[in-house]
Structures are given as C-alpha cells and as structure tokens.
Design a protein around this nucleic acid. Structure first.
Length: 416
RNA sequence: GCGGCGUUGGUGAAGUGGUUAACACGCCAGAUUGUGGCUCUGGUAUGCGUGGGUUCGAUUCCCACACGCCGCCCCA
C-alpha cells in the first residue's frame, strides 16, 4: 500500500468543511480591507528564499525542500509566503506606479522539512497578506487590525497582540551589538542552544525557553532602549493607533522573530497569552534585497492549521451544514428516470438534492435519508407519477403532501 | 537532526507465544409481501503498520524501517 508522505495529510469530511468556512471568513474580511487575492507558484528558484528569508536562518539551512529539476535548475518549495509575493511584486514592476499601496492576501500551501507534530506538518497552509509602498504607521496598524480581527471573526475571543519594534537598520544594528556585548561575559551560563544562537543570531537568545527565567536574560538590554528618536516616535504612534482601534496588545521587548528581513514593527498574535497563532512585521529592506527598488513592506501570516486547532480547543462552534435538502427515493426504472430528472431540476434551482445511485432497496434508501439528514424526502411511486404527482414528506414533522410534479420546486421554495 | 511513547477491522477498542482474534458502533440482509428511523436474528478483518530474526510455532519476544503523537531544535 502506498501511504501518504510524512507530515502530509488529506483534507476531507467535516474538517474540509471547517476549512471552507474559515476560508470564506478570511477571504471576505480581506476584501473588506480592500486587499486583492494572489497566488504564487509552489516552487521558486532556491535563491529567492536564501536571499529573502535569510541565508543563516534554520528555515533555509535545514528545513527547505530543495531539488534540482531536469533542467538542472535549483528549485525550492516555498517555506513561507512573503518572498514569493515580493518576487511577484518586483518581477511585475508594480513599484512603477505606486500611487496607491499594493495590498494582497494569499492562502497557500507551504513546505518545510520538519519533524511533524500536531499543528505542524511538512505540508501546511498559511493565510497571510502584504502591503507594499507605504511606510506609515497607519499601514502597520491596518495590518495588525486585519490580523487581529481575523481571529476574532473566527470566534477566538482571547487573542492579543505581542508587539515590539526592532527599529530601523541603524537601531537594529546598535541593539545587536549591545546584545552581543552584554551576553559575551555570560555566555557560559547560558544553555547550549543559546551558545549556538549567540554565534548565529544573538537576538534569538531572548526567545529561549530554557533560560527564560534566568536573570541574565531578564536584565538583557531591551530593543526599545536602542531605538533612535525617529524609530521611537514611530513605535509610540503605532501604539496610539492600536489604542484608538481598541486592539489589545502587550509591548514585548523580547519578541524578535526568526526571519532576517524584519525591521521596525514586529508582532505576533497569541492565544490566551501563550502560544502564537501567527506573526508578522515590517520589512522595509526586503524588496531591495530581492532586486527591486527601495519599497517599504509590511505583512502577516497565520498558521492555518494551528489556528484551526486552537478553534477546536477553544470550543468554537463552526456551523457545518451536513444536511441535504431533498432526497429522492426510487426503485423501478421509470422512478429512477424521474429521480434523475428531478434531482437535476432541484439542484439547478438551488437546492441540495440527492438520490440513490447504488440500486439499493427502498429500506436502504431510507437509511440514506437519515444519514444525509435530509429535510425533505420524496418517495417516487409509479402510480403517482402516472398522475404527474409526487408525495413529499417533511422529515421533521412527518407531514406528507401530494404535489404536482411541476409545482415541486415552488412547493419546497415556500416551505424552506 | 536528537530523545520518549505508540501502531489490532470502516470506527472505538480488548486480548494471548499455540485450535475458529472479545465487545461496541457502523455497514449489509431478513423478520416488515415497496414508506424507513425502535426491536430481534444472521452476516461482516487481504488476520493484529512493513520487513527481517528468535522459536516446533508470533499478532504476542528481539531488531530495523515506515507512519503517528509528545518534548528539543526551529517555526508559527
């Protein structure tokens, strides 16, 4: 037997319906914010992610699906959405006429070679969005607003924003140096992983779970103390806007996030003050890094599967319609012909209709009625059909009514 | 990539080194001669993840691998 690959999964049944429900909500919300839908290719030149996400990040170093194709191109399955969208933005020269910001949202499969756990797979979905061309705090606030309200609309009440600012390039570099200087004498008191982080990406030490309670990390320099005047002002302004929109947030100076491209505002959306369901931030240098002009950008991505899990844990009630409007029962050949015709007719008139396709006994067809939770059932009967009539039964009230076959659609329309 | 736990039918699951692998749900058929959902009766596994090994004999013991779950790394 051929089985699915590690870390992949099939989506079907009720969980497929849940996803459709979530998709509909998210898509509609994005449209309200006047974002346009975009899809980019699953695979891109490996270089895109190496340059975009950051050569030194673990995501690129050990988690990407890389391969050489038959034309000897170096290909990578996208591990995140932003790099591909930026590539699209640059390749299509959308920066050429930036009278308005370019706002796009996506809902795409991503691939990372990781050890699977629940809410984390090798193939997974991220829903996210990006804004190009605006360097304003209002753009930052809009992005956070969209992210926050997405979770709220999905029924997750207890969500909050974790907010930090890395500042502009100058501030970020100053901070990085201060951090290195601070940690250097303490390096042997930190855990092994942190000693590794110290070399590769010292900012990540702040994220460490092992040393989280240690005085060393608690007393470490804070990002906001190293913001220059302008960066500080921006950060304050952003907070004002969030206050104005009633979006709850905590300033979390330890939040640095893993990808190299962020500057200024970074944020995560957390559930119950614990784990993050999504994150984003500003990336003013990324477009340039990927071969475009200097165009500011800001964006967000939601861990789709994780969010679905969270909804389950929180007991969010997702309305799933598993019931059929009308089920047609038929046994004889002529009854089945009528069933075919009527089923099509009902479907084209907007009803969910179904009928037996397996030549089952009438009794077995009644079981199907129950399984499909049909609102109405019609037992076709040759005698009635001679008179152009059908008997339609309300499956809840058990009331039966004799209806002319030509009035059937109207009848159901009136009663539903 | 590292560590721990797990893997029995469509589903949930019990169980044992040795004839026919519980039970429940589901499904199918009949009682009910073309109007069901209750009840009763009967039926329902390519045989216990895959491949090796130990053994007279393994689903049960050992090893490897695969997949799943949990923790780490990482990400979100």
């Amino acid at each position: 037997m051929i089985t699915k690959q590690k870390g992949t999964y099939d989506i079907y049944g009720d969980s497929a319906k849940k996803r459709m429900y979530v998709n509909d909500i998210l898509n509609a919300l994005c449209e309200k914010y006047n974002f346009g839908y975009i899809e980019t290719p699953v695979f891109e030149a490996s270089e895109l992610f190496h340059r975009g996400v950051g050569e030194t990040t673990d995501m690129v170093q050990k988690e990407t699906y890389d391969f050489v194709d038959r034309g000897e191109r170096n290909i990578t399955l996208r591990p995140e959405g932003t790099a591909g969208v930026v590539r699209w933005f640059v390749e299509n020269k959308l920066y050429g006429n930036l009278t308005d910001p370019v706002k796009v949202y996506y809902n795409m499969k991503m691939y990372r070679y990781e050890r699977p756990q629940s809410g984390r797979n090798r193939e997974f979905t991220q829903w996210g969005f990006e804004v190009f061309g605006s360097d304003t705090c209002e753009a930052d606030a809009e992005v956070i607003s969209l992210a926050y309200n997405a979770y709220r609309l999905l029924g997750l009440e207890d969500v909050k924003i974790q907010l930090n600012s890395l500042g502009d390039t100058e501030s970020r570099n100053n901070y990085r140096e201060a951090l290195i200087k601070y940690f250097e004498p303490h390096i042997n008191d930190l855990c092994e992983d942190c000693q590794e982080r110290f070399k590769k990406n010292p900012l990540r030490i702040l994220d460490c779970k092992v040393d989280a309670e240690s005085e060393i990390i608690k007393n470490a320099p804070k990002t906001i103390d190293y913001l220059n005047e302008e960066s500080k002002k921006r950060f304050e302004r952003l907070q004002e806007l969030l206050d104005l929109m009633d979006i709850p947030y905590d300033v979390n100076t330890k939040l640095v996030r893993g990808l190299d491209y962020y500057n200024h505002m970074v944020f995560e959306v957390t559930l119950r003050d614990s784990y993050a369901l999504g994150g984003g931030g500003r990336y003013n240098g990324l477009v340039e890094t990927l071969g475009g002009p200097s165009v500011p950008g800001v964006g967000f991505a939601m861990g789709y599967d994780r969010t679905l899990l969270a909804m389950e844990e929180e007991g969010v009630n997702v309305p799933i319609n598993n019931s059929v409007d009308v089920y047609l029962l038929a046994v004889s050949e002529s009854e089945k012909e009528t069933a075919c015709y009527l089923a099509q007719n009902l479907r084209l008139n907007g009803f969910i209709a179904d009928t037996d396709l397996m030549n089952k006994s009438l009794k077995a067809q009644f079981k199907s009625v129950d399984r499909f939770d049909a609102k109405y059932l019609i037992v076709l009967n040759d005698e009635d059909l001679q008179k152009n009539e059908v008997v339609i039964k309300d499956n809840k009230t058990k009331e039966e009514e004799r209806v002319n076959i030509n009035d059937l659609v109207d009848y159901i329309d009136m009663h539903m």
